[in-house]
Amino acid sequence: MKISLSRIQFFMLLFPLFTGFVYISIQSIIIDSGKRAAWLIFIVASILVYLLFILYEKTYKYFILGKVSSVIYQIYWLFHLSLLVSYTIFVVSTWMSPNTPKYALLLMLLIPSLYASLSRAETAVNIGAIFGTFIIFFIIFILNAADDFEYRNLVPTSESGLKEWIWGLIYSFSAYRNMECYLILRKYVMKNEKIAGKPLFYFVFLLFFMYMFSIITVSLYFSLDEFRFISEPLLYILHTQEVTFIKRLDLIFVFFWVLITIITIINFILVVKLVHFKKKRKYTKMRIVLYHILIFIFAYYFANFADLQWIRVRYWITFPIFGVLLPIMIITWNKVRGRTIFDSSNSSS
């Protein structure tokens, strides 16, 4: 499979990958563990992540997935996607469609993704553009709550001690999970497009802004203790808002969010496809169908409150392992051997 991306397409692919599914739920856990300094902690975490981005931008050419590492990532991604799908249907069934059976919800998410994955690659590459439209809606809706903001909720930051900082940082990092996707997609960007420097900064800043906006607004709106109970604070804010024509804004947002999640799944499967079909393989379409069936089965069994909660609390672990440790190991290893993607692509394809 070969695609080539312009700069804007590259970032639009990454944007849903980073924010798509994490966005709805991450604030609660960051604030609950970071307490009042959560926003400060998140800024620090974002700066560190930005440094990591710069590092990856410098060294992406050494990131070659070998057989073993490909398999590891594929297993992780399958798990990740199943989790993503099951979490989505869990949220949809609690907020929007409590009576729709699980398998119907799963089909609702997976059929569009299957359709897009079987279509030409450009479709998956470009679909992220829709994302932007929703963000504008969303920001307007959230700012509706501005009347009830309590500005004292952000201070005093000194109440957060070492424990809060450590856990706050760990969970803040997990907002930026899927760092490996940056490395994987980076090599498909057309050679004459400039990424390093300003464009990268703008991209990371936009990500940061999106998260920061949500963290600040939810911590202004809820008192600290409420975050123990509320797992989707953004939805909850919208739930409590009433505008003249619509009483439940959260429903509208869940509607958009389902669309965004579908986009995320499509983009993620594109990444999976890029890695899997790097070598020419037979039965391309069958494999894609099979992959969706696998996700369906896994997600079907994950989707209950206790399991999801158990996984979500421990899910911070994926960022250090798959987002940092493994890529850095691969990069170092290839740097020592002096192999870059440019010579490996000649040999393997």
Partner: peptide, 17 residues
């Protein structure tokens, strides 16, 4: 309900793409 519309919208969108 809304979920169905979201599903349809996703399919429509992919089709248009």
């Amino acid at each position: 309900g809304f979920l169905g519309i979201a599903f349809g919208a996703a399919i429509l969108l992919i089709h248009l793409l």
